[in-house]
Amino acid sequence: MLLFAAAALSILTTVGIVFELGKEALLFFRSAEATIGEFLTSTIWQPAILDFGIWPLVLATLTTSIIAMIVALPVGLATAVYLSEYASPRVRGVIKPILEVLAGIPTVVYGYFALTFMTPLLRSILGVGAVEIFNTASAGIVVGILIIPLVSSMSEDALHAVPMSLREASYGVGATKLDTSLRVVLPAALSGITAAFVVSISRAIGETMVVAIAAGAGPKNFTFGEDSLFGYILNPFVAGETMTGHIVRISGGDLSYDSIDYNSIFAIGLALFVITLGLNVVSRRFVARFREVYE
């Protein structure tokens, strides 16, 4: 019975998350200053003058996540294909621990890396004028590096699950190693790889410290029409604050309970929870499907 209680605590945790986030978010939307319509449509987030539109934060989150995926997908997938199809056991023995170390480094260290290495690097390549000290591009690239191990280990598991007979059949009809890896094994593992991608996106969206340190410390408010679309709104080299970054900055200060600021970060948290949970559930579906095929 005691053991069951221990297991049931996990349910309680989920209920706690949903309940607390929901309660505070509800207080937020019930208050006179914010409405759910404004929250979901406005492109200005400025609590000081009671503007609560989530889009500037979502846009920054999307920017860093997309950049992260552009870095992590090709590198992570290529690493997985190499490790699973080409590498000798010795190479695997060296590379796997390196990836594990990369995965074990705390995110705050990656934040330091983004600010003291990646940003100066971008600025020396593209010019100091073009790249702000805090910018979403640098944060995004480093988040990408951070999730390479996740992409590669999940993809490698998927590739490993492809039965040997498929590869042997491919060689049997005269295909080269390249054809076999890319045209037979990869498509066969596609659902598992997709799952890896979806989990990685969710991880990139939820990633906090790197963006809190390197992406910027104020929402990038914008108005369609007035602000240049590519020069400012979609420009990754401009500072922008993500959803997670905003929560960290607001709660890092002295926050009084029942203030609109306190409630607002819970509304953001709820949005974040729903997005990441949704992505994780989707990814689990993919994994379940791909298990059905080969087991």
Binding site: I17, F273, T276
Partner: peptide, 23 residues
């Protein structure tokens, strides 16, 4: 319970922070 534990492992850490703050 099992599914829930697997899903909890994927929740961003900052959400746990908010849970801790509230509870």
């Amino acid at each position: 319970i099992q599914t829930n534990i697997n899903n909890l492992a994927g929740v961003p850490s900052i959400i746990y922070g908010m849970l801790g703050l509230a509870i």
